[in-house]
Design a protein around this nucleic acid. Structure first.
Lengths: 204, 204
DNA sequence: GCGCGCTTCTGACATTTGTCATGCCGAGCG
DNA sequence: CGCTCGGCATGACAAATGTCAGAAGCGCGC
């Protein structure tokens, strides 16, 4: 018999969090010691309750799962982080692993499977969903340079070049050049399509 | 004592669907007779099992909750539809109600609350989350004409005007005009920002 | 040290887009 | 009927954007 695993559950959707809590509580060796509905709350709860494993949703108000994981890694090195997500973008997986996350799974897994994965992660092993891993490998690394990505991000909400230039403290010509080269690298018709593609691949 | 309510549960996320099923099954008067992971599957399951209430996720592969609701309304008029969603956009609510949906709630409600709402809907009453209803009223109706909305939708993926014109069988000038007036009505700087705004409000 | 790639900028040019004046048509109204 | 008004469509013009060539500085690896 393994030791009891103390869990922190963070997801902004009460319905899902509650349902998940109920299901995981059915497992004898899992106990939920805290729940949170936002990034900052998750962090506060983790500090207060020092769980063994933190199960975090990727998208939460305040701070996303990866940011929370980064802070957690620094403050509570003994707490393993497992990220659960609805929309698995390749780039997110890469960022998560870089942040020291031990597990990354889509919400399409069953509860039993999730319980097993929680135990795997608690034992100090890693677990990444095979499908997401395959996507990440297939899509490869971002071909964008740091500045290209930065400028593309500023262009994300459809702002005109003048505004982007001001916010990035660059000349308009330079901004256009970055946008142009980013669009070319991504094979997009224009910068807006480029933004969409980069989003899909988790490169922004 | 009310009669037993036979449920169809449709959500593409296994984890959530399973958890939800487990929680709702705890209620004596609720029984899940079918589950589905996509729009078409939900439809097929409904035909086969003829549930009293269909609980549908708004975003599913194949066909979204509103489309499924429309078909269901036509094929199984006795089956009440309740839509559950993560991201409640005002326009979606409006479209859902127009499609004959009886209930519309965000995933932030608790499972007990959901069970109550299922009973409400089964009794033939309507239920709309107050917060979402307020948003819908506040954001008002779409100021866009049919063509404006159509063209804006075609512009959604960042396609150039030429492509939109071809797909809409319009001249490029006309397309530009619609995009321009749509952007003006929405108070956006350009069509891309307009697309973003219309998306947020569920008008596309 | 030298080459290479990233960053930044400039200026010129072609293309795309946004804006405007204008005209057509059908619905509603006095 | 004749009028206005809103939706629909078009082409011309102006502004924004995309593309290209060139150039200078910087840091990194061989």
């Amino acid at each position: 018999m393994t030791a009891v695993v103390r869990l922190l559950l963070a997801d902004d959707e009460h319905l899902i969090r509650g349902a998940l809590a109920a299901l995981l509580a059915l497992e004898d060796d899992l106990v939920i010691v805290a729940e949170a509905a936002s990034g900052p709350e998750a962090l506060a709860m983790a500090r207060a309750h020092r769980p063994d494993v933190a199960v975090l949703d990727l998208q939460m108000p305040g701070a996303d799962g990866v940011k929370v994981a980064t802070s957690l890694r620094a403050e509570l090195p003994d707490c393993q982080v497992l990220i659960v997500t609805s929309h698995g973008r390749p780039g997110h997986l890469k960022r998560a692993l870089a942040a020291g996350v031990r597990g990354f799974v889509p919400k399409t897994v069953s509860a039993q499977r999730l319980a097993e994965i929680i135990r795997t992660v608690h034992a100090g092993n890693r677990y990444v969903d095979p499908e997401l891993a395959a996507d990440a490998i297939a899509s490869g690394d971002s071909p964008l340079t740091a500045r290209e990505a930065e400028v593309l991000e500023l262009a994300a909400d459809g702002a005109p070049v003048a505004e982007i230039a001001e916010r990035a403290a660059l000349s308009q010509g330079t901004v256009r050049n970055y946008l142009s080269s980013a669009a070319t690298k991504l094979g997009a018709e224009n910068r807006h399509a480029a933004v969409r593609l980069a989003r899909e691949r988790g490169w922004v």
